[in-house]
Design a protein around this nucleic acid. Structure first.
Lengths: 334, 334
DNA sequence: CTGAAAGCGCTTACAG
DNA sequence: CTGAAAGCGCTTACAG
């Protein structure tokens, strides 16, 4: 491939001058207008692009950010990834994608890879799924880490998260408002703080004194897998007294719940109203269309990158909690 | 951060020896057992990981692969990305993710970025959505390119694809087999070869002589956007004679079609059977569960990486066409 | 405004 | 088996 020396030769200048024209860092060095033009012409003719590896080596910044996700196939993570990618691109960073499938060994391998690449920061989506050992793995990496989603024990790690409890509470209150009196929360694994917080929000909503006694609340805990959600809901509906409203901790669980309701010969929302969480892109297309809590995925990504770059610059960074907004659709129509 | 010199000092050897122990390339250099052990111990104690940038610079291989996708929010692409990531990891490559949102300017920026990073190859998912200018942009990049999905004019570019025509034909034949006689194809933008091939497969199926005359076929063309699919289907159902079977070119369109059927007061599959394409992870969870053509996403990713590395090694690579398998669920139950 | 030179952190002939 | 040295492709004080 073509190097800076080729461009320099063609333009009849030194490589230093080429560098100054083509990569004027923070404090640009003066170069005469026509020299600059000659250099640019030569670069264009040779279709030269400076090597990011060589640049990174000398300026000691890789321009790279690692993005760790537990599972690309879960429709929630691509939304986050999309936000992170957008924000990273704006700050001139490239994103290395790391799919851990939730396993510690892959996380370990990827942390090593990201360290080797000298990434400026690691953004970990699905932060709340991390267990202690995994968090320590990240902390020990000596690379700035920003979590998206707050873990149970954040141990000082910076995170960006939504207010899961408030959002879950709002979703549940909506079920109450439309007159549901036997409300179930179909939770994910409550070992994850995200799921735990959503469950907390659920309980906060159902414990409003003014309605106490007229309301029954039940917790249906699952692993988070839709198949599990399906069977748990099917069982609840079979043995009665039936729930008439379900707040599911994720849209995948909500869709599983709708399937179980359907298969029990019941209807959403007439017999059982359902509201989910995440507002995946397909939510509005389902029938009945699925009410859900929308996460500001792009905003989360932006904030994560902002904090990551602060940390990378050696500054302190303050964790951020963003609001989430419930969207009401047909699945909770009164 | 810690460098090879730190490790060398600690182990009491030269940096050459450290390199030989820690990064034994293809032809490992002999090192005495206890020297090697001392080096490894020092590296462990200092938690040293060699800089991929420095290594890449001297060996002239970045170990990087660029993955270009048009839209992470479309549930089809994360499946592909997942396959590519898996395969890349196995071959010791890291993946840079590039979300173009279908725009040429972002594609251009990303091609430049990937060239600067000296990626060994670029894998372009959604290859069939590319227009001529975009293809030439990729060709001119001078970096090996493998497309996932075949463009209209492949101009010699290597691609991996499924046999869209055969798969579409099988899906359509299934509708015929279950007794549907007014069958519509809800297509995406047929300027994309993928969509064009699926439409061809549809027509091939409905033109079987033995059933000709007893079968009506209609093409409902859309932009590929679910909203558009919804309105096109709604219109078809409203003005009659109604289709009783729909083969949608993507699952998103199929879901939109199911919504339109539902909103017209009709039922899937009794009034209108629906089969989609892609078999997104949620297909089986819908009610009715959605029949669909499953793509071997992981396999596609693997093949793409295999071909990409062949090209990167200066060898020729043969484009690959893999079979796709229809999965029949409740939405086409007889 | 321009260039020569040092140096970023590694690998790998070359010599011993 | 080990090390000194050149060199990968850049940036940036330093000198002019």
């Amino acid at each position: 491939v073509v190097t800076i020396a080729d461009v320099a030769a063609r333009a009849g200048v030194s490589i230093a001058t080429v560098s100054r024209v083509l990569s004027p860092g923070a404090a640009p060095h003066p170069v005469s207008a026509d020299t600059a033009e000659r250099v640019r012409a030569a670069a264009r003719e040779l279709s030269f692009v400076p090597s990011a590896m060589a640049q990174g080596l000398v300026v000691r910044r890789s321009g790279l950010i690692g993005l760790v996700v537990p599972d690309l196939l879960d429709p929630y993570y691509p939304s986050i990834a999309s936000g992170v990618e957008q924000a990273a691109r704006k700050s001139q960073h490239a994103v290395l994608i790391c799919n851990t499938l939730g396993t510690e060994s892959r996380l370990r391998d990827y942390v090593r890879l990201l360290r080797a690449r000298r990434v400026e920061a690691i953004v970990v989506s699905g932060g709340s799924t991390l267990r202690d050992r995994q968090l320590r793995l990240l902390e020990r990496s000596d690379v700035p880490v920003v979590l998206i989603g707050r873990p149970v024990e954040d141990g000082g790690l910076t995170y960006v998260s939504i207010d899961n409890m408030a959002a879950a509470r709002a979703a549940t209150e909506h079920l109450i408002q439309i007159g549901r009196t036997r409300i179930a929360h179909l939770s994910g694994a409550t070992t994850q703080r995200t799921m735990h917080d959503r469950a907390d929000g659920f309980f906060a909503a159902v414990r409003i004194p003014s309605i106490e006694g007229r309301l029954e609340a039940l917790l249906l805990e699952t692993s988070g897998a839709p198949e599990h959600g399906y069977s748990v809901v099917a069982e609840q509906l079979a043995k009665g007294p039936r729930a008439d409203g379900i707040f599911a901790a994720t849209d995948r669980l909500a869709i599983a719940a709708m399937a179980a309701v359907h298969d029990a010969g019941l209807q959403v929302p007439q017999d059982v109203a359902v509201i989910g969480f995440d507002d995946i892109p397909l939510a509005g297309l389902l029938r009945p269309s699925l009410s859900s809590v929308a996460q500001p995925a792009v905003q989360l990504g932006k904030e994560a990158i902002r904090l990551a770059l602060q940390l990378a610059a050696g500054q302190r960074a303050q964790s951020v909690v963003l609001p989430a907004r419930p969207i009401f659709r047909a699945s909770t129509q009164p």
